[in-house]
Design a protein around this nucleic acid. Sequence first.
DNA 1: GAAACCGTAACGGAGCGTAACGGTTA
DNA 2: CTAACCGTTACGCTCCGTTACGGTTT
Lengths: 123, 123
Amino acid sequence: MQINQLAQRTGVSTRALRHYDQRGLLASQRLPNGYRDFPEHSVEQVRRVRLLLDVGLDLSAVALLLPCFADDGRLTGCDRARERLVGQIREIDRSIETMRTTRAMLADELARWDQHDSRSGGH
Amino acid sequence: MQINQLAQRTGVSTRALRHYDQRGLLASQRLPNGYRDFPEHSVEQVRRVRLLLDVGLDLSAVALLLPCFADDGRLTGCDRARERLVGQIREIDRSIETMRTTRAMLADELARWDQHDSRSGGH
DNA sequence: GAAACCGTAACGGAGCGTAACGGTTA
DNA sequence: CTAACCGTTACGCTCCGTTACGGTTT
């Protein structure tokens, strides 16, 4: 399929897709006219790329991990890749905690603001 | 105090402090030799800047909000600023939800990976 | 020929990290 | 003289958004 369709089916911009493709994350081929031609499983692939990016990895890390999800047999270095993912999960948990704390502090800040506001008569 | 001390007391890099200062968020003065001279309350100020940045605002937004925390009287536009902060809190809540979901999906991905691994004998 | 798609090249941007180069002060 | 600070450019980095320019397909 062409890039536009892949974009629609994944919800990812064509710009991003070209970016991923350029970094070698999408294994696309070219039609005689130079247009990119993506195989069906690119949809799944893109989903995975987004997922990995969303958990905080960067493209180079994603590139290292992707092959490990291949349907055909294992590849070297995937156990370390797994460790990496597990580590990322912990990272996320920490992030969530941090966000909670931050959120709480902001709420406090707002409360104090309101107090000051009422003491000084508000506006 | 000088920039290095402020950095130590806030845990923020001097580079970042200079950045904030340049954007007009820190109200520093200059010593005759050109060195930046920060007042005591800069410590608190920096804390607040970091807090606001951490909740997802960018520096320009922080710049608009900071004056509203001033100890001396109210300023114009602060009610809208407040709305903004409240909105940010909701944003954070959504972010946390998203992270949770993402985390869950990643965990699933890992589980499937493991299944595949054991079915194919692992390595 | 217009509309809709595709391609590459390249600048922009947010928030600093990281030199690189030089004056100041203890 | 040196070590420790401080200052000002200014480029690097990440992940694309956004032109800008041009060919292709319908």
